[in-house]
């Protein structure tokens, strides 16, 4: 952190008296500054809108009504969000449990086992997977996956369907980011351990992956963040009945799905209660970022 600050602050001081360059530099600094302010402003704006929108429900029902172990019948004055928080966590964690290891394996394959051509082709495939709109995954889940699960364990729309669809969506995120992390390691680490007589798999397991722990953790965290916020694809396959996720075949509802499902038709306190759902979701993602600070380390690559 300290080193990057000195890099940013040095150039203007040096170039201040060099004519046109100084002007360009000044413009550049202003643009940078403005985009920084814009990003922070957008973030603050979202928080303010959420807070204002939540205020009526929080004053009428109180925060307790949302965290208490109640049901969600907003038009009848019951606002329990616990089941939906649990379902959101279960779907996302399940997706990460599947996509995390697979994604890391994909990254290792691209970096150390695939040749140049195969590796590049595989990366293109992953990038394409990442670029497919989530509603397409949802449509696939709804028309192909859910009927298959329904034939085996009705009703089909379930936690399991959500985990499978989300895993496929999160996999490319984790794989591409983890691969980027592996690429930033000095080549000497891997080559050096091979030269010392390590087997390939041992070099990767013991040396490479443990050195890239921060980057891999960051990749998983970003994948998890994507899973937490995913709305449409999940909405289309999990069934959306508000219940604790007590079985992989049970119908559950996640927080983002709750907002998308009811917002268009909600008025007054019901609408405000949906803003509280948004606030809860923000809190969960915020908590995740804090955890990532603690585990991943500050110098883990971001992209």
């Amino acid at each position: 952190m300290t080193s990057s600050q000195t890099i940013i602050s040095r150039p203007p001081r040096i170039r201040l008296f060099r004519g046109p360059l100084a002007l360009k530099d000044a413009v550049f600094v202003v643009v940078l500054w403005a985009s920084g302010v814009l990003a922070i402003g957008a973030m603050a704006g979202v928080l303010i809108v959420l807070a204002i929108g939540s205020a009526p429900a929080l004053t009428e029902a109180g925060l307790g009504a949302f965290v208490a172990d109640g049901d969600w019948y907003p038009t009848a004055g019951e606002y329990g969000l616990v089941a939906m928080v649990a379902a959101t966590l279960a779907v996302s964690a399940g997706a990460l449990a599947v996509a995390g290891p697979l994604g890391i394996l994909c990254a290792v394959y691209i970096r150390y086992y695939a040749g140049d051509v195969a590796g590049a082709a595989f990366r293109v495939v992953l990038m394409t997977l990442a670029a497919i709109p989530s509603v397409v995954y949802g449509l696939w889940g709804m028309t192909v996956l859910v009927p298959h699960i329904a034939a085996w364990q009705p009703p089909g729309t379930s936690l399991l369907a959500g985990v499978i669809v989300l895993s496929i969506m999160v996999l490319p995120t984790v794989a591409v980011l983890a691969e980027a992390g592996l690429r930033q390691l000095p080549a000497s680490l891997y080559l050096g351990s091979l030269a010392l007589g390590c087997a390939r798999h041992a070099a990767i397991k013991r040396i490479v992956l443990s050195s890239a722990k921060g980057a891999v953790a960051a990749a998983c965290m970003l994948g998890l963040a994507r899973a937490l916020g995913e709305t449409m694809a999940v909405l289309m396959v999990v069934g959306n009945a508000v219940a604790m996720p007590d079985s992989p075949f049970a119908s559950v509802r996640t927080l983002p799905a709750n907002i998308a499902l009811e917002m268009a038709y909600a008025i007054d306190v019901h609408r405000s209660a949906l803003f509280v759902s948004g606030l809860f979701l923000m809190a969960m993602v915020g908590l995740l970022l804090v955890l990532r600070r603690c585990w991943g380390g500050a110098d883990a690559p971001q992209s």
Partner: peptide, 24 residues
């Protein structure tokens, strides 16, 4: 009452209901 309903799948609009029933 809304609290009496025990549903497995809750959907938003008619189209979604049709898709779910057509697939199950």
């Amino acid at each position: 009452d809304i609290r009496d309903i025990r549903a497995h799948t809750i959907i938003g609009d008619n189209e979604q209901a049709v898709k779910v029933v057509a697939g199950n």
